[in-house]
Design a protein around this nucleic acid. Structure first.
Lengths: 158, 158
DNA sequence: TTGCACCTTGACGTGCGCGTCAACGTAGCT
DNA sequence: AGCTACGTTGACGCGCACGTCAAGGTGCAA
């Protein structure tokens, strides 16, 4: 409330955007530089203004990177596919060439299919891993239960 | 069969180990240098000999890295925990101090619990993502079905 | 219009995860 | 003993994903 620019607007300057997404300003500029983010709208003087959609996109990127460990190059591919998707939705009525639309959609479908396959593979492996860990945990717990009273003279607390 | 060292033995030199695991010799040495792999047994002249267990461990590391995108530092933590686990199993009978064993086990349990939590979180997010993709796929397919006959004069095959 | 917080674009620095030589030793066949 | 493939330890290089100044412009309140 002190002197924050456009306090009631939903558009965020880079500082606020960084804070909200948990990234740094440098990172946001870097993503933009690498084509992961489109150039956001600017104020008169050139200050970046991030729309809510921009913020969403940033958080999507963050997830893909931190959660799934994809490289920025990988993510760019995905985002490009996503862009095509949105582009399709935008041009839904304007462009009348149905054949071309079908081609685009098939392309998008293919990419999406590939992504789901990758995801499925990862999830499968993770599930297997999780089972191993769970089993391990059970073993620990069982041992601790069985030997709960065996300790000779250790302090009983903690 | 040409002149491969100890062709009938299960122990592998670094070249073969690299080939089997799909990593490079440099990477294997690097992992060893970083403490991710224990120093493997050596031949007289200092050549590394990887045991089947070593190979397994290498492949575990590879999975954790490539599949889940963990950093080598993260993986080292996990492997250290795993080492403690194996150490416990090895010293099962020798060391009689039950209290100490319990402490180790509780520590290992804690680490394992943390790992499962991380995994669960990741899996949850991935499942959500997968749903989005699946929905998208459905939309594509539906569109393609609905507009299958709409195309003006496109070839009917494919 | 001055002041300060916030922003801009370079440009160089940094840690990770290796790649890539260089110089040299070893294993095993002949 | 010699040849050659395979290995050893440095040490420097590299691309990625940013971190970190530096030098300057912008926005807004006082």
């Amino acid at each position: 409330m002190t002197h924050t620019t456009a306090a009631n607007d939903v558009y965020l300057q880079i500082g606020e955007a960084a804070e909200r997404t948990g990234l740094t300003q440098r990172t946001l500029r870097y993503y933009e530089e690498k084509g992961l983010l489109k150039r956001p709208t600017r104020m008169e003087g050139g200050f970046r203004l991030y729309s809510p959609e921009d913020i969403q996109r940033i958080e999507a990127i963050k997830q893909l990177k931190e959660l799934l460990g994809f490289s920025l190059a990988d993510i760019k591919e995905m985002m490009d596919a996503e862009d095509i998707r949105l582009q399709i939705r935008a041009q839904w009525r304007k462009d009348a060439d149905a054949a071309e639309k079908a081609a685009k959609i098939r392309k998008a479908r293919e990419v999406t299919l590939h992504q789901t396959a990758l995801l499925d593979q990862k999830m499968e492996q993770m599930a297997a891993m999780r089972n191993e860990l769970a089993q391990r945990l059970e073993n620990y717990d069982r041992w601790l239960r069985e030997h709960a009273a065996d300790a000779p003279a250790s302090s009983t607390k903690s």
